[in-house]
Write a protein that binds this DNA or RNA. Structure first.
Lengths: 182, 182, 182, 182
DNA sequence: CGTTAAGCGAGACGGTACGTCTTGTCTTCGT
DNA sequence: ACGAAGACAAGACGTACCGTCTCGCTTAACG
């Protein structure tokens, strides 16, 4: 295992930057380890020393940019909070390179268990966890899924449009559910 | 381009069968056009003549098997109907090779727009369409998403378990929503 | 074996014509059985019914055109006769599509024994035979080779130019040989 | 393009060796880039990195073996020298795998200009050059052709046998020519 | 005059080889 | 020891061509 303290931060950033640039310029299909290395002016070995494969690099590039736009500070009331989060996802995902990348990462995760685990651990769970405590009832995960699943489902299948109105609707009915049924 | 009436049905079935066999034996990563051709005793050209790539072949293999277990005849009452469908999806997807294949196909669809279109057109929409008419209110798609999105979301992200109880809960709250909010 | 009396002469000529056209348009590499069939408006089966492979077709196309320019009627004297023949070869081969085709056929014959046999039988021997009787001495084949080999050698290796002067020189020294040594 | 100093000599030799082995075992038709790579335990990419195609590989394999039997040191007298060289060609070519390979390479060169150039440059010219200076008269190339063309002509057309006697005869008459006519 | 057996056009098929691409490992230098 | 560079084994990709085949259609010879 490499010694993290001796890692070259320039190379680290160059790799993430090159990955993102390639993605913007040519889409996911333009991202290959060779291409990243060439554009970053870095040896392939340096990439494989620190990441297991290009999916992991792309995940880190995604997280760096996605985390740069932090989730909304929670306003008053559960309904408002969830609505703010749902709209935040819409803004982050829809019509953005970041949303496309997330789609592609979730896609790649279907054949890359390690990526699936990392996505859960570094993206989905951290965004859900702060909200779980706010949800009353004995199955907060169910409510969170009612809110967030439709968003991601449409993102991945594209069978219907996603916008703020949709986000608002989803939150409204999901909350109605949890009170009506819980 | 090619004349479908002259298509060799033996070769057609052999290709789909070989694809499925490879999938069962070695998972999605074992499926390659070369491997399919070799196992089916078929020239690669014959595959490329009728399908654009292996994703399309795998989709057809998926649909052939998935359609072989038709959705439940609709029992009395909307609630029962949706519950039957949700449980049907659970049975079809969870812990089965078919579910794994669907996951992988949705994954591949994130970088293959044609596959995405075909999946929507030949899988998602046909399963939704008969149910849309049954849903009261002015946004039946929203209700269908409340029911089916959590299922697929958990299938794709694996952040929580899927079983009949989950399916039942989802249907219960989704219906509670639509009545409470609509 | 097919019944030659029922052969369609239009198809026969169309195939030879298409072969030649392809050759002129794109060189030997543009000649494939598929391409011939397509351009001739003929089924591949029709080609394979009458020829074993494309080399045989091309040979026939070559012979049809090469035989259309018959060798010179033999003038007075062996020296003149050989010189006329040598110059005839030069005219036929050098800088012409026909010469290029012969090169390519001899090339193909190196891995196609049947083509080699046919070339010998239908091209080389018929051109040599009438001359053999004219050559005095006990090894006329040697003299013929002294005359014709350099021509074909340069055609195939391209290590030096071929023109009438070269043809004349070859004939002059070859004849000098045969008298000096014989 | 690639950095020759970093070339792996084991792989280089394995490729040439595998090419030769395939040739000996199954003839030219058994030689394919795939087969070479498989037998040499080498990636196809490694072959294509250093050679443009299999013809170039085969040429190098030919040259390696052909140069291993160097041309005869030149004995006293032009006649003896040429005779030794002619017999050397006969020994090298006739009834040997090497001769068959040369035939096939010359054949392939008819549709591969780069191979043609390389054959001239690395085989024909180096063997001719040392002899040119020995030939008196103003057209040494003509004399060399008189000696070597018949040999190669018969090799390529197979219209007559090749043996030491033929070589001797060719040299005898070719020299008679040059003195008689020059 | 009708039947029947070809030739024929079209093109699908099994197969093989091609040349390109990407992945992840390994080696060689330089710093 | 890390990093830049890139060669390497492996093997999938999609294309091209080969030679065989199956399908209907037409057409000539024969009953």
């Amino acid at each position: 295992m490499p010694d993290a303290s001796r890692r070259n931060p320039q190379a680290h950033q160059a790799i993430l930057g090159a990955t993102w640039d390639l993605l913007v310029a040519g889409g996911w299909s333009a991202v290959s380890v060779d291409a990243i290395a060439a554009r970053a002016g870095v040896g392939k070995r340096t990439i494989y020393r620190w990441w297991p494969n290009k999916n992991a690099v792309a995940l880190e590039a995604f997280l760096a940019r996605a985390r740069a736009t932090p989730p909304p500070g929670d306003p008053e009331g559960l309904s408002e909070t969830l609505r703010a989060h749902a709209r935040h996802f819409v803004d982050l995902y829809v019509g953005t390179r970041l949303g496309a990348l997330l789609r592609e990462l979730i896609g790649a995760a279907q054949t890359d268990p390690e990526l699936a685990r990392a996505l859960r651990e570094h993206w989905f769970l951290p965004r859900r966890e702060p909200l779980r405590a706010l949800i009353p009832g004995d199955d907060p995960d169910l409510v969170l899924d009612l809110v967030f699943a439709p968003l991601h489902y449409r993102l991945l299948t594209g069978h219907a449009a996603i916008d703020h109105a949709f986000a608002d609707n989803v939150v409204k009915v999901a909350l109605a559910c949890s009170t009506a049924s819980g």
